[in-house]
Design a protein around this nucleic acid. Sequence first.
DNA 1: GTTCCGCATGAATCGATAG
DNA 2: ACTATCGATTCATGCGGAA
Lengths: 292, 292
Amino acid sequence: MELHTDLYLGDCKEELKKLPANSVDLIVTSPPYADQRKSTYGGIHPDEYVKWFQPISKQLLRVLKPTGTFILNIKEKVVEGERSTYVMELILEMRKQGWLWTEEFIWHKKNSYPGKWPNRFRDSWERLLQFNKDKKFIMYQENVMVPMGDWAKSRLKNLSDTDKIRDNSKVGSGFGKNISNWLTRDMAYPTNVLHLATECNNKKHSAAFPEELPEWFIKLFTKEYDTVLDPFMGSGTTLNVANRMKRNSIGIDIVPEYYDMVSKQLKPVELYLLEPKPNYEKVEHQRRYAIR
Amino acid sequence: MELHTDLYLGDCKEELKKLPANSVDLIVTSPPYADQRKSTYGGIHPDEYVKWFQPISKQLLRVLKPTGTFILNIKEKVVEGERSTYVMELILEMRKQGWLWTEEFIWHKKNSYPGKWPNRFRDSWERLLQFNKDKKFIMYQENVMVPMGDWAKSRLKNLSDTDKIRDNSKVGSGFGKNISNWLTRDMAYPTNVLHLATECNNKKHSAAFPEELPEWFIKLFTKEYDTVLDPFMGSGTTLNVANRMKRNSIGIDIVPEYYDMVSKQLKPVELYLLEPKPNYEKVEHQRRYAIR
DNA sequence: GTTCCGCATGAATCGATAG
DNA sequence: ACTATCGATTCATGCGGAA
């Protein structure tokens, strides 16, 4: 099978109309956040944010499959000492459109922006809002299981003294069995909090979010050769990850520089995929390097 | 000085009217969450939640000092596959009342309840909504500083090699301050995510939140002999912590069993405080044990 | 080749200063 | 008065050069 990557240059409100209905398995995106400075290029004023996003979310609702999922990464800023309410108003508006607000994941940022203010701490989390068209959506939970590492450690630490002594007396037999039990059960289902660091090191493409983030949701909500859409692709983090994970992808951006950048990044991959494949491991290996 | 603890038995909507205006420095509470099962005792239906809470938040706005803070611990439940929207509607309604929604802290629960659902992961976070009457509220940030991460450790290690020598050569010239500056750098300001475990060790009362939680906010927003209010005191976690930290406290609950329980818990403390105090350390020591 | 250290860099926010 | 710009604050991260 062949992987498709379709890029569109333009306002996603319009470009999305070119896509067929019920054709996308997963939408992962991080739109520009509201900005009180009107002069900023592309900045949307908080008061106008819902009105601006409403026609876009309407198109997203149209193109998403009934079994698909929409993940929206967003966070309200502080305006005059108060948190803006446009995100809440957006959720209420999208429900009126027919979206189901099924879950709110939290992205707990390990390295948040520094700063000190008299009445506020550093903001180290963002919302990952999950929307669906239908209560019956597809979810591959077992694909995002995490090592039990920390959980098991704390459990072992919490064992009472008597338990530990008892275990020590069973050296060679019982304790060994216990250990093996822990080892076989080394994977656990995650929670709705993602504890990741931001990627702020690279020179050119300062990605809005780290690759782990779209990767996690792509694993959770799609299988190979499903279709992933990012209507605000920016530097193309979501698309790169989708390609690497063998998912078809669609990207839209209104900024020509981003469009060109992502086009160049993806070209080597696509060309390579059309060539005959010598063997699986080699392909996997080279693809990773081709994208990055 | 003497510590006061005032308990009220009754509906907080009415009991709060007995308190004078602008008299409370901090409100920390965890009201009953909305519950779709009408039969549950005390459960409020999601659709009626805002209407139910509105007169209470109006009274809280009245009793809070202009420099005070209101911390509301709440989380929407899942109803028919969707997250309820009553928390968002509550925030919007409280802003109409005159509250400022200044911040949303996240309580990231280290050990969330186990469980598995076909289309949902374990919910391991709750909202800690901060409301204020005025943009100028009191905050003692330095009281909640946390140890720095690994970066600081390596940094301090560097200092011991070169900068320490330099500082030592300047002893007596007033540059010794540098050393103390670096030593204070052991601690960093926290973020707006609180990563705490739930308390699962308690025998009788399943406290709504762990003691660390009210403790953190009491440290952050009050000084000794300030007044802390919990209009839904339940088993009295907030009041116990406030007492231990030498804050005056006010507790309200509609359930007689809770009222009695907290009365008994607090009695030994209050009696002791009325006795003559032999010396400071002893008082401190015995108070801690009297409460727990 | 490891390990260690220096450095730049973030979806930030406030208060002061300038137009 | 009201708005726009700017500097100060601050910490986790990973790269690249050095020991």
